[in-house]
Nucleic acid binder design. Structure first.
Length: 774
DNA sequence: AAAGCAAGCTTTTTT
DNA sequence: AGCTTGCTTT
């Protein structure tokens, strides 16, 4: 194979270094996948059996693409390569061997919703006050422990005498007990249990050593300690471990990713070959300069700098709009214009943002302009109520030990089975040491159950009929089974009888779910041409729980894509908009006020990832006013915008004006009452607080109501309540005490400049700040 | 048992 | 603003 014809020297080195540990530091857009694809092709070319190659990625999409590209290149044998995500790799291994850990091989996979319900019931059971320790916190701690391979006992020991930690340790212990009882694993468990299995059963590990002689891990900067250990164990066999990643794109610390895994690779594998890919094939030099300038502010990174021979290209655009609605308008108009001018088509655009909440306004505007779009992430399709309900039925049919699923559907649709009855059944189950479903089967024995017993029995009969039908090969395929479930249980009837608009959506979603099942059925047939039967229910449920939204994005569809920057990692677009480039949004307040600079550095890496998604045109936008959690916030331009030298922009970046921001958030009682009378709650606050913001009464179908005009006029409400003057000492509810420096009346509102002892100088609107003279 | 209503909390990011 | 939760009522 003449690699030099297709690869640059560094890529070529990557493709040729097959044996031993290899670290490939691949900058954004540096042709990493290309190098990897050729690497695998080269391996097969040199006589390595594809069967002995393992390639691990983070998303199914990445796995699919890699397999496809290898296939294109090699032509055959690629299906023999094990290309899969961490999670699906572990599931595959566990399905074969988990009995050695005391689970049944038909275990259910819990998503984060399931985990949350389980924790909730544990808190109730154990008398943990969820107001003192939130479920979310408990889940975070547990997940964090698992990322570090720390079991409940170890955590308990570490907790020492700390009351809260002991409570969490108790919840953790109980959580694991119930998972096992339900024959279920959560996401983290998939990795943890796999490591546990390898440690407990050396023969199993050896088995996989024989198979996986060459291992390759993509996005290595995102691995956590458990994943590190998993890989380490597997690589113990032959030592041929190739990891690929970019420390500058490590953006999953919150999920336990340990950036040290990549930074310390050479320490862990002293004889590692290190290869740096720095030539970028994606973006213009201007975009790369901007990205380099931003990321240069991070400390403790592997030094590298992207370059291209593509030329400078266009300058970067920046626009600060008055509010988030105008930001959405600007972006969509810009897209519409470019499409109209035939500079691009819809699929060339992506709008990226920091948080999912930002997608709403953009979406509304895209609908208004009739621009085709797709939102990736956010509320997962499989997270919808109706889908979860059906999944709970399927899980119950598939794994009778999953009490959580049984509880979810035992009274859906309504069967007159109340909470108390379920509780009685659960108690009975606990006493007898059986599953909830078994308890329901023996409903007559449940103490004090009364007439409800009949209803319970009838429910279990319904479920058992499905099982019998499956065993008797009654169903042609999965869609048929699902169809039978929604009909026989009366689920679909309940939805159809309702005239709620939402229920119409539900029905459509269920239809979509059924077609997804059909698609999966087809995919399974394609992948297993020799298989006589279709996929099992277990396999289908597994597929469903392990797909991410991004996996279903068709890059050739003529749609504008909207997603978080996190979701966009690994993707590229000719035109990228980074929306909400504001201080407090991106970087978010949480990281800004965090004590370690690690958090802000992670945000900066995220900015770097965002910028480097753009191939040709990059547009950054910010809004002066934005509604967040029901409050209007006035944000300065993001520090990341300011870190880009002005020469790369086609316009000046506005400097922060003295009185332009820093209004206080507090709202007086009077203005609250005004707000409530406004047609759109919080929006009017914008008008009251900032009369200078233009609120044109436009024909727009959403948001800023016309009725505001009257309110803005009334902004002389401020007079009369001020009982302090320059030089006075005042107290503020949040900021404490300070000295009044300046009182200025502007546009009918009164701005008071106060120098606070603790928080420095702030400009407050006298109308809203509850300042009291002391 | 189920429906209807007020309070309160929320936002990082996801396999 | 929107969603979930808990409480109240029927």
């Amino acid at each position: 194979m003449r690699l030099e014809r297709y690869l640059n020297p560094e890529q070529q080195k990557a493709a040729e270094t097959i044996d031993g540990p290899v670290l490939i530091l691949a900058g954004a857009g540096s042709g990493k996948t290309r190098a990897l694809t050729y690497r695998v092709a080269n391996m097969i070319d040199s006589g390595i059996n594809p069967w002995n190659i393992l390639a691990i990625t983070f998303t199914n999409k990445a796995a699919g693409e890699m397999r496809e590209r290898i296939d294109d290149l090699v032509g055959f044998g690629s299906e023999e390569i094990w290309v899969a995500t961490f999670h699906s790799t572990c599931v595959r291994i566990l399905r074969r061997h988990i009995d050695k850990l005391g689970y049944d091989s038909s275990f259910t996979i819990y998503d984060s919703d399931d985990s949350k319900s389980l924790i909730k019931s544990i808190c109730k059971e154990q008398g943990i006050d969820t107001k003192q320790i939130k479920e979310k916190k408990i889940l975070n701690v547990i997940s964090g422990c698992k990322d570090e391979l720390m079991g409940p006992e170890e955590y308990e020991t570490l907790a020492g005498g700390d009351w809260e930690q002991l409570k969490i340790a108790l919840a953790y212990k109980e959580y694991q007990r119930l998972l096992k009882k339900n024959n279920a694993l959560d996401f983290d468990d998939l990795i943890v249990k796999c490591v546990e299995l390898f440690k407990k059963c050396p023969d199993v590990l050896e088995n996989y050593h024989r198979r996986f002689q060459y291992i390759c891990v993509d996005e290595y900067q995102d691995t956590n300690s458990a994943q590190f250990e998993l890989i380490r164990l597997l690589a113990l066999g032959h030592g041929n471990l190739c990891v690929v990643g970019d420390d500058d794109q490590s953006i999953y610390k919150f999920r336990g990713a340990n950036i040290r895994n990549i930074l310390d690779f050479e320490k862990n594998y002293p004889n590692a070959t290190v290869i740096k890919l720095e030539q970028n094939y994606r973006s213009t030099q201007t975009i790369l300069n901007a990205a380099n300038a931003v990321i240069a502010n991070n400390k403790g990174r592997k030094n590298k700098s992207l370059w291209t021979d593509k030329g400078d290209g266009n300058k970067i655009h920046f626009r600060q709009l008055d509010n988030s609605r105008e930001e959405a308008e600007f972006i969509t108009d810009d897209i519409a214009r470019k499409v109209r001018n035939r500079d691009a088509t819809y699929k060339d655009f992506a709008i990226l943002y920091r948080t999912n909440a930002q997608s709403r306004e953009l979406e509304e505007r895209l609908i208004y302009e009739g621009i085709p779009y797709q939102i990736v992430g956010g509320q997962n399709f499989y997270g919808r109520k109706e889908i979860k309900d059906i999944l709970a039925y399927l899980k119950t049919i598939d794994n009778g030990r999953d009490d959580l699923s049984v509880k979810r559907i035992v009274n859906v649709p309504k069967r007159g089975i109340g909470e108390t009855s379920v509780k009685k059944a659960q108690n009975f189950a606990d006493n007898e040491g059986i599953s909830l479903f078994e308890a329901l089967c023996r409903a007559e024995e449940i103490p004090g159950i009364g007439k409800t017993a009949e209803k319970l029995i009838s429910f279990t009969k319904t479920i058992r009929v499905f099982r019998t039908k499956i065993e008797g090969n009654y169903y042609e395929d999965l869609p048929e089974l699902i169809d039978d479930v929604i009909n026989e249980t009366g689920y679909i009837d309940e939805i159809r009888e309702s005239d709620d608009e939402e229920d119409k959506d539900r029905e459509r979603n269920i239809d979509e779910f059924i077609s997804k099942a059909a698609v999966y059925e087809q995919k399974y047939a394609d992948e297993n041409p020799e298989a006589e039967a279709g996929p099992t229910l277990t396999q289908f449920l597994e597929e469903v729980s392990l797909v991410a939204d991004i996996d279903n994005v068709a890059s050739d569809a003529e749609k504008v894509l909207l997603m978080t920057i996190h979701s966009a990692k690994g993707l590229e677009f000719p035109n990228v908009y980074l929306a909400g480039m504001e201080d407090g949004v991106f970087p978010g307040d949480a990281s800004k006020y965090s004590e370690s600079d690690e958090d802000i550095e992670e945000e900066r890496r995220l900015a770097y990832v965002g910028i480097t998604r753009a191939k040709e045109e990059l547009t950054l936008t910010a809004a002066k006013a934005r509604m967040m959690r029901g409050e209007t916030q006035y944000n300065d331009i993001s520090m990341f915008v300011k870190e880009i030298p002005e020469e790369y922009f086609d316009s000046k970046i506005p400097k922060k004006k003295k009185h332009d921001i820093d209004f206080d958030d507090d709202i007086s009682d009077y203005s609250m009452s005004v707000m409530r009378s406004a047609p759109f709650g919080g929006v009017s606050r914008t008008a009251i607080k900032r009369p200078s913001v233009k609120i044109a009464p436009e024909k727009k179908p959403y948001g800023f109501a016309d009725g505001l005009k009257g309110l803005t006029k009334g902004s002389d409400l401020s007079a009369g309540r001020i009982d302090y003057e320059v030089g006075d000492c005042v107290r503020h509810i949040k900021f404490g005490t300070g000295t009044v420096k300046e009182i200025e009346v502007k546009d009918g509102s009164t701005n008071v400049t106060v120098e606070f002892e603790k928080c420095g100088v702030r400009v407050l609107n006298a109308l809203f700040a509850k300042l009291t003279k002391v």
